[in-house]
């Protein structure tokens, strides 16, 4: 088997040493794969991806990007290595213009490629191209999310991680976001997606991983997970009656 795009090895992470939230997760994503991370509230999904991105203290275990160990690299260096992260909230600079948001991210590229890369992204996101000098704080929710994704793609990452990109969006706009992610994935970018919107996420994903209590509980191909009763059960808690469907 080839080297995965990204993998974690017995990862333990959290905000306080005596209270790890991610409690030993082995997790790996193949090159070109779109994996969705699912789980009930507090399962540690968000903490897992933040730890991978370098925002949460890692107590033990390892993270590898391709065959490189990036466990202890600070957040800004992980970007240089090809790992891009889109947080759930506050994921754009509201006091900078749309164009400045892209410029700030493009700063780590070689000087001569910066403007070409930004025009490529404007071509991909015509909504942003239409308003480059608008302050990002004045964008709509969907546009903000698109800007955040565009900003992350600037560096042409090998792995793109998104924390609940559909949160707070109307179903129609969320569908747009998922469509965009699917097409980005089809260009060869590996994507890890944390989502509450189980159905929509599984619809575009190759594979789903379910976390409970900071551990990996279950996983499988997206197509089979969608109808898997275990998913519904894990979501609603073991003490509830299992036959609930469509969680």
């Amino acid at each position: 088997m080839s080297v995965p795009a990204l993998s974690t090895d017995a990862l333990v992470a959290g905000y306080e040493r005596d209270l790890p939230i991610v409690r030993g997760i082995d997790f790996s994503v193949g090159i070109g794969e779109l994996v969705v991370v699912l789980g009930p509230n507090g399962a540690g999904k968000s903490t897992l991806v933040k730890a991978i991105a370098g925002l949460v203290t890692i107590h033990s275990g390892a993270i590898r990007l391709g065959d490189r160990d990036i466990t202890s690299a600070p957040a800004h260096e992980k970007v240089h290595q090809g790992l891009a992260f889109v947080p759930q909230t506050e994921n754009i600079f509201t006091t900078l213009t749309v164009h400045e948001n892209l410029l700030v991210a493009a700063n780590i590229l070689a000087k001569e490629t910066r403007s070409r890369r930004i025009s490529e992204l404007y071509a991909l996101f015509p909504d942003l191209a239409a308003r480059p000098s608008l302050k990002a704080g004045q964008l709509s929710g969907g546009q903000r999310q698109m800007l955040a994704v565009a900003r992350a793609l600037i560096v042409a990452p090998s792995v793109l991680i998104l924390d609940e990109p559909s949160a707070g969006l109307s179903p129609k706009v969320a569908a747009d976001v998922f469509r965009t992610l699917k097409s980005i994935n089809e260009t060869g970018v590996t994507i890890i997606l944390v989502e509450q919107n189980v159905k929509a996420a599984l619809a575009i994903a190759h594979r789903g991983v379910i976390l409970v209590d900071g551990k990996r509980r279950h996983e499988g191909p997206a197509a089979t997970l969608a109808g898997d009763p275990i998913v519904a059960e894990l979501y609603l808690g073991a003490h509830r009656a299992p036959p609930a469907v469509g969680a």
Partner: peptide, 16 residues
Amino acid sequence: RAVSENQQLAGIVGID
């Protein structure tokens, strides 16, 4: 300006 608005995000977009 990016760091002054949001340090964490600044790190995520590759700013040291």
